[in-house]
């Protein structure tokens, strides 16, 4: 995100009032995909709020992300139905396989792992959603396969770009 884009967002909130913090953060995330340190500092200067306070507010809500999201955003549903059908195992398996925790992104920038409360597809439990696409009845084996498939897919993409 450029400073210009950020200034456009801040410009929408001409009054520097702290109650605009959350709308500003939402706009920044929409434009940038996440809330960066740089953005927090600029917002802080604008609203006269310390960075720690902004981070404190932003981490209170599940909706904000603090790392650039990966090429594939994997959302694991941890709602009641999925929980009963074993979604915590799926989450564990993904965390082990990707070597990241929920809320983080792999170093190669390929995968982001997120936990969501309910995807509204309880009949398909346990369900995960990758870049908006739902995958039903996921167990550990299926989760591994999905990840392998995506890694392969991204390699093919990369090769295509090269050639």
């Amino acid at each position: 995100m450029t400073d210009l884009q950020l200034n456009d967002i801040l410009g929408k909130y001409a009054e520097c009032k702290r109650e605009y913090l959350i709308p500003i953060l939402q706009d920044v995330q929409e434009a940038q995909g996440f809330i960066s340190k740089e953005a927090v500092q600029i917002i802080g200067k604008y609203l006269n709020l310390p960075s720690s306070k902004i981070y404190g507010v932003a981490t209170f809500y599940n909706q904000f992300r603090f790392n650039a999201p990966g090429r594939y955003i994997i959302q694991v549903c941890r709602g009641t139905a999925c929980h009963v059908k074993g979604s915590s195992n799926v989450l564990d398996a993904l965390q082990r396989e990707l070597k990241i925790k929920a809320g983080e992104t792999t170093r190669d920038g390929l995968f982001s792992l997120e936990v969501v409360a309910c995807l509204g597809a309880c009949g398909l439990a346990p369900v995960i959603c990758i870049n908006g696409e739902f995958h039903a009845n996921v167990d550990n084996a299926k989760a591994y396969q999905l990840i392998k498939k995506l890694i392969k897919e991204s390699k093919v993409e990369a090769d295509n770009v090269k050639s």
Partner: peptide, 17 residues
């Protein structure tokens, strides 16, 4: 420099980022 980060049982005192 420090603030309550996160919420509920996961809240902790920490710094920005």
């Amino acid at each position: 420099a420090i603030e309550i980060i996160g919420r509920g049982s996961r809240a902790y005192v920490g710094t920005a980022f």
